[in-house]
Design a protein around this nucleic acid. Structure first.
Length: 920
RNA sequence: GCCCAGGUGGCGGAAUUGGUAGACGCGUUGGUCUCAAACACCAAUGAGGUUAAACUCGUGCCGGUUCGAUCCCGGCUCUGGGCACCA
């Protein structure tokens, strides 16, 4: 009888679920370990073989840690709010909640078939009101908090209110980017509404009128990380800049901490680098340029104060608030024209337009160091949203300034000794400064320090650290997301009462109103489960709201009084191992870190980073097949002849192609329009082209895990996905090698069963060799799993089995150990054999075998004997052989004499237990 | 343009601290079993070279350090990813 994986797998999946084998409870006696996957968005397409890759790895690790005696938390849930389900609702009228239910059910059945050890009793779904009650709660905490720069943490807004009452906002320690200044008298005289408006400049969740990324096709605003090259990440629609009133989160207050604590995380360098780039810390100075004919000054941010004497002009962003004040009447027309043109450009146009443009305002500023007059221009290469929205232009040291100066025939002063700036600016920092008054003769770094010191002394500037990171826009004008726990009284936002969850109301259509308000504006007062004030907020939260804290809810998923109890979050603490795709590098991973730090500041949890160790699994790419249709015909030409025709390449379903050879009959049946297709063949065969690309339904290159499980079983699938290569690496999907791992399991089965499927096992018969074999495997499997080298574990298990088969070893102890080693990878077959061995509780509850070093101790070592570094032959010596002994034997060996060919050795290197090298 | 990761047989990949390059698997070839096929098993399999061996070359390219380099250093190149008027 053969290995009947279908029966085995369904039996044990039922056993595990009936006996609650995977449920986990807090247990202070045991050390905890938290293994988490980035939870999936349940799309209508279901899982393909790429999705479970990370889940399999984390499941193996979780099972391994359990065997090592840890109390392992390994949950799963769904990030179930989001755009695709809503788009589907718009097309079909099916309520997103209904579609979500169907999709999650499908996901669940696919996941169950793979044999994961998830504790499903802890499942959460972000679209469940019991869950998003607490997402709203966290938003409320953010709204009720401001950031105190002095204590470097979030504090209650009441603290700020108290401060304003007694001091105004002079020297106040609370983080803001507003320039507003007020005294305590002013504050105390203000109306309640005015006070609330001003507080919005400080709250960590705030409403503001700012430039946002508006995507007309999606009908919503987007955060910066959802825009790629001026197009929306989802759908690839154009995005424009628009001034709108939106909710934002003041993540910029956390920029420094988010940047700094990256260094302690066990994440890949490239991922940390992406976050660092995104935060974009740069050190420099703010310098003040007094205006010549107006009161007031232009502040510029620069990272190169050493080049300050090389300033030939200033440039403001067209949107800069001073532009309208300083423009002279004779330049008014040209400035207004320029501003209007740049307003019309989208972000994408502005980026792709490499032409130098700008206009002179007619005004001058006074150089704070030299006292000279400096012309003030406006140009759209200066961004309003970075730094101060103004730059000091140093054409000799900055290429953009150089191009600008050249274009408008502005003189360029060179402040670098012996550097040629006739062809381009000199941007390196390794020069000596000249033409710069008291900075002359200094290196750039010395000059930077001295220039800042001078600016501080003369009160014309100070040191400044600037971040590229912007506050995160937090509202979306869509339907399928968390409603805001906010109502309005006279346009001022207020929080709803403490214990209330604002539920998503039912509406007639999932589209904006006639007036362009978000879909939720369709809800009447009676449609809301809670209504107060003049109106409810009609925005929803973005997709990343629910996923920014779900790892906390898994610790205490059914708590109705807290988002997570302190006791439980203290026990489970940080996620010890987090596995997911690199596409979340700046979105989800940055926002989760932000929320974790915030909740830490407020004392709700006692750790300030969510994910201690993170692995990005590489994407599994699809291997698409193409057929070539001859233009304007229903004729298809084989790959080798396609250049003789004008053809269009079309994706063809990989399921009707074998080894790049098209199954013509299946192809004719595949699509109605191909029923009468004709073919130009070579040797009677149609060869398809291929391409490695992302797996997607539209490319017909997807493979579902279900098909493979049907054919080979879940254990084979699990082993094979790991065997493909290192987890982090991108790799094309191919089922070429799947027979290999399947044969491994069959070989194991056959080794342990007779032809009637009776278990073959012997007692205490193992040879010394078998002990060595199994202990070598124990060592390697343990070490490799510990260092997340999941692919080499499979090889080691194969090697071990090959040896045991050769040794005809069926000894109970050895086989038990082997089965436990295998069980994280192939839990079903392991469980089956485990019970056949006479055990009566799940293998999950057993212990990982203990490696015994003494068994592997060898008496001798086979030395590679190399000549000038090249291995030529091997010679065994006992481990206690002296160097002299080894040298003598080697030098007298006939092969040595042969390889030396009469020459005398210059040097003989003997490294004990490593190598012998003879240099001649 | 800047930053990060990577380049090893026909293919996926291994080599953990500078010490036998190519483990394990796929594929291919030959053989055993079979009426035959499938399965299974055995053997070979980096390239050149030879009846066989000897030998030569070989981890993207050029150079360096070292008794010894896939691994360390310098320069280049290609692939993938990130950022990009960021002052």
């Amino acid at each position: 009888m053969e290995y009947d994986f279908k029966k085995i797998e369904s039996n044990w999946q039922k056993y595990w679920s009936d006996n609650l084998i995977n449920q986990v409870k807090e247990d202070s006696e045991k050390q905890k370990f938290y293994v988490l996957d980035m939870f999936p968005y349940p799309s209508g397409a279901g899982l393909h073989v790429g999705h479970p890759l990370g889940y399999i790895a984390s499941d193996i690790y979780a099972r391994f840690k359990k065997l090592k005696g840890f109390n392992v938390l390994h949950p799963m849930g769904y990030d179930s709010f989001g755009l695709p389900t809503e788009q589907y609702a718009i097309q079909t009228g099916i309520h997103p909640a209904v579609a979500t239910k169907i999709n999650t059910k499908r996901y669940r059945s696919q996941l169950d078939k793979i044999g994961f050890s998830f504790d499903w009793s802890r499942e959460v779904q972000t679209s469940d009101p019991k869950y998003y009650k607490w997402t709203q709660w966290i938003f409320k905490q953010l709204f009720q908090s401001v950031y105190c720069k002095k204590s470097d943490k979030a504090v209650d807004v009441l603290e700020a209110i108290n401060y304003f009452k007694n001091n105004g906002n002079l020297d106040c320690p609370y983080f803001t980017d507003s320039l507003i200044q007020f005294t305590k008298e002013e504050w105390n005289l203000w109306s309640e509404q005015k006070k609330q408006d001003v507080l919005l400049y400080y709250r960590l969740a705030f409403l503001s009128e700012t430039m946002v990324n508006w995507c007309p096709d999606l009908g919503t605003v987007l955060a910066n990380d959802e825009v790629k090259n001026g197009l929306s990440e989802r759908g690839g629609f154009p995005v424009e800049q628009k001034k709108m009133k939106q909710w934002s989160l003041r993540i910029t207050a956390y920029a420094d901490r988010l940047n700094y604590s990256l260094k302690d995380l066990d994440w890949s360098d490239s991922l940390k680098e992406i976050q660092r780039n995104w935060i974009g810390k740069s050190k420099g100075a703010i310098l003040n340029f007094q205006l010549e004919s107006f009161k007031g000054k232009i502040d510029v941010f620069t990272t190169r104060p050493d080049t300050v004497f090389g300033v030939n002009f200033l440039v403001l962003a067209p949107e800069h608030r001073l532009v309208s004040q300083i423009v002279t009447s004779e330049h008014l027309d040209s400035v207004n024209t320029y501003i209007n043109i740049s307003k019309l450009k989208t972000e994408r146009d502005r980026q792709s337009d490499k032409k130098v443009s700008g206009v002179f305002t007619g005004s001058y500023a006074i150089h704070p160091f030299s006292g000279e007059k400096v012309a003030v221009w406006i140009a759209d290469y200066v961004l309003a949203s970075y730094g101060t929205g103004a730059v000091m232009a140093v054409p000799c040291g900055d290429q953009r300034d150089w191009l600008f100066a050249n274009n408008f025939n502005i003189d360029i002063l060179n402040v670098f000794k012996d550097k040629d700036i006739s062809e381009s600016a000199y941007e390196n920092k390794d020069a000596v400064i000249i033409n710069s008054g008291f900075l002359n003769g200094l290196s750039c770094n010395e000059a930077i320090a001295k220039a800042i010191a001078f600016a501080v002394e003369k009160k014309v500037g100070q040191e400044k650290i600037n971040y590229r990171l912007r506050d995160a826009v937090f509202s979306r004008q869509r339907y399928w997301g968390e409603p805001f726990p906010i109502y309005y009284k006279k346009n001022t936002p207020y929080l709803v009462d403490d214990d209330v969850v604002v539920e998503l109301p039912d509406i007639d259509k999932y589209l904006p109103t006639k007036d362009g308000d978000p879909p939720l504006a369709r809800a009447h007062e009676s449609d809301w489960n809670f209504f107060k004030g003049d109106s409810m907020d009609t925005n929803i939260m973005p997709g990343w709201a629910g996923s920014s804290w779900y790892f906390l809810r898994f610790m205490d998923p059914h708590n109705e009084t807290e988002f997570v109890s302190k006791e439980k979050s203290d026990y489970w603490n940080q996620v010890d191992l987090y596995i997911g795709g690199a596409e979340h590098a700046v979105g989800h991973l940055l926002y989760s870190r932000f929320w974790t730090k915030f909740l830490f500041d407020k004392g709700y949890i006692s750790f300030n980073e969510p994910f201690k160790k993170l692995i990005n699994q590489g994407m599994i790419l699809g291997r698409s097949n193409y057929v070539y249709r001859v233009k304007d015909s229903n004729k298809f030409v084989t790959k080798s002849q396609k250049n003789n025709f004008e053809t269009t390449a079309l994706h063809v379903d990989i399921n009707i192609v074998d080894n790049d050879i098209l199954d013509i009959d299946k192809f004719k049946k595949w699509r109605k329009e191909y029923e009468n297709a004709e073919f130009i063949l070579e040797d009677g065969r149609y060869e398809c082209g291929f391409e490695i690309e992302k797996m997607s339904k539209s490319k017909y290159n997807t493979q579902t895990p279900d098909d493979l499980i049907e054919k080979f079983g879940a254990d084979t699938l699990r082993l094979y996905e790991m065997f493909l290569g290192p987890l982090e690496q991108f790799k094309p999907w191919s089922t070429k090698g799947i027979n290999g791992v399947h044969n491994f399991l069959r070989k194991l089965w056959r080794h342990l069963h007779d032809e009637h499927n009776n278990i073959l096992i012997t007692e205490n018969t193992a040879s010394e060799n078998s002990f060595k074999t199994i202990h070598r495997a124990i060592k390697r499997v343990e070490e490799d799993i510990e260092r997340y080298s999941f692919n080499t574990v499979v090889s080691n298990l194969m090697i071990c089995l090959n040896e045991l088969v050769e040794q005809k070893c069926r000894d109970r102890d050895i086989i038990s150990s082997f089965i436990i080693l295998l069980s994280p990878y192939a839990p079903h077959i392991a469980e089956e054999i485990w019970f056949e061995l006479g055990e009566d509780s799940s293998i999950t509850l057993s212990n990982f075998p203990v490696f015994d070093e003494s068994i592997l101790v060898e008496k001798e070592f086979e030395y590679p004997i190399s000549f000038n570094g090249k291995m030529r032959y091997k010679l065994a010596f006992s481990l206690d052989a002296s160097k002299e002994n080894i040298e003598n034997s080697v030098m007298n060996h006939e092969k040595t004499i042969h390889y030396l060919a009469g020459k005398s050795p210059k040097k003989i290197i003997i490294v004990p237990k490593k190598i012998v090298n003879i240099v001649f």
